[in-house]
Amino acid sequence: MRGLSLRSPSPMPGFGLAAGITFTLLSLVVLIPIAALIARGADIGLAHFLATVGTERVLSALWLSFRLAFLAALFNLVLGLAVAWMLARYDFPGRRLIDAAVDLPFALPTAVAGIALTTLYAPNGLVGHVFQGFGVRIAYTELGIWLALVFVSLPFVVRTVQPVIEEIEREVEEASATLGAHRLRTFVRVILPMLTPALLTGFALGLARAVGEYGSVIFIAGNLPYKTEIAPLLIVIRLEEFDYEGAICIALAMLAISFLMLLVINLVQVLSRRRYGNA
């Protein structure tokens, strides 16, 4: 049956209605608007697209956005693993509070996070003036952008890895220890491979979020062209100049690079699953 019809027979009612609502809303809200962007992009033509994206200002904005998003996601890979490990394995006062607080970046609107981080890390801010004493400026530099991106992408790795750590059976670790492996070796050779798929999923989610982030970054970034101007901000600037073509070109470049990156991460994930089994 399955080979012939699009869906296998079921006694359950409501497929038509559910499919109707799903596809109508999905098309209206998401698919048709994205198609509109791609259609308008197709009108521009490749040569014009390359000329627009190839300008120094656009290239440096794209490079800044993707580089800092990657570095933030990388930092969160380590911090997220540490937080998840701590929450799953250690007992310490306030564990449940920390567990709940990890989702704070999901609960706090980006504009709120943006102005709070900026005042906190500005040269005259509570934390910023301490760093200023060491000659380190955070707000209005790349470091500030990175910090905001770390903030917004913090929960992803924790939330994907934590349940996997909780499901690891202690027997596996005991077996490894019995066979003479010390703790670090057990962690690297036994535990880490089991966590790799979840780590990569969290990394990809965090990266995607950080690349597109706008609200929390624009306050702390300083927004100097060529230096601290992120790609989403450049899209907004182009729109305010009514340069729709310019905005479309940057948006399409961002979409293309994002999908390419997610494709690579998916590929790595498939390879790691093949190597370590379906953990």
């Binding site: 048709i32 608007p33 994205i34 509109a36 597109g212 989403p232 899209i235 479309i248 979409l255």
Partner: peptide
Amino acid sequence: TLIDLPFSVSPVVAGLCLTLL
């Protein structure tokens, strides 16, 4: 995958798509 699409699109790009449409 299509349902998850908005997670990998920048909110600014989302706004741009709707503005164009």
